[in-house]
Amino acid sequence: MRPVAPPGWPHEVRPPDAPGWEATAVSWLLDLCPAEYRRYTGLRRHVVVLARFAVLHVEAQQAACRRGLSQIRADLKDVATLEVVDAAVATFQLDEARLLATRRAVGLVEDALRGRRYVARL
């Protein structure tokens, strides 16, 4: 049976059960997290724990992005032109979309590390 990755699976990570897939998952998850996480050997030994840390980290980034988006106009109104403020809003919106996709991907990887497997659909 050929390993299958669902839609939204990160292209940096091999599909579940492919040779070396967990190593690619660990590398990708560590790339999502603060650099300090690489020093914590427990996270490398317990990849499900690493995945949970990554989920929480991405969710915190999403919350920060939502907060920034809701406050940016008021925060910059006295120090930046409307054009600059609009560009900042657009940047937050782009990052919000990126983080949404990242949250889905990290959730899929976490599920696979917990044993979930995916099947190809025709």
Rank of each mutant, 00 (worst) to 15 (best):
R103F: 06
Q61H: 00
T24C: 04
A25M: 03
G68E: 02
R67V: 02
R66S: 02
A64Y: 03
L56Y: 02
A97Y: 10
V119A: 12
T102S: 06
A5H: 04
Q93E: 15
V47Q: 08
L50Y: 04
R14D: 11
T81R: 14
Q93L: 14
V49K: 03
R121C: 02
V58E: 03
L69S: 04
A63D: 05
C65Y: 00
D75M: 12
A18C: 03
G8S: 09
R98P: 01
L108Q: 07
P15H: 09
E22F: 01
A54H: 01
A51G: 12
S70I: 00
P6Q: 09
W9T: 05
D17E: 14
E12A: 14
A5K: 10
V4S: 04
V85R: 15
V109G: 06
A120I: 00
A60D: 08
V119Y: 02
W9R: 06
L69P: 01
V4Q: 10
V89E: 15
Y37P: 00
G68K: 03
Y37S: 10
L29C: 07
L76K: 10
V89S: 11
W21H: 04
V49L: 12
D17T: 12
V58Y: 01
F92L: 12
V119F: 05
F53R: 10
D17F: 02
R117H: 07
V85Q: 15
V89R: 13
V4C: 10
D95P: 00
W21G: 04
V4P: 08
A63P: 00
L32W: 06
G20F: 04
V58A: 01
H46W: 01
V89F: 12
G115H: 06
V49G: 00
R103I: 01
R39N: 12
M1Q: 10
A97H: 09
E12S: 08
V58Q: 01
R44M: 01
Y37G: 00
F92A: 11
E96Q: 15
L43D: 05
R104T: 12
R52E: 13
M1T: 12
A35S: 12
G107I: 05
W28E: 08
A35R: 14
V109M: 07
L82I: 14
L30T: 05
Q71I: 00
R73Q: 11
A80N: 13
L43Y: 14
L94N: 14
E83L: 14
A18K: 03
Y118H: 11
G68R: 04
R38I: 03
G115I: 07
G8V: 07
R73K: 12
A87K: 15
L29N: 03
R116P: 00
T41N: 07
E96R: 14
E83K: 15
P7V: 09
L82C: 03
R14A: 15
W28H: 08
L94Y: 10
D86R: 15
A35H: 10
A88L: 12
C65S: 08
V47N: 02
A112N: 07
V109F: 09
A25F: 02
G107R: 10
A25W: 04
A90L: 14
A35Y: 09
L82F: 06
A97D: 13
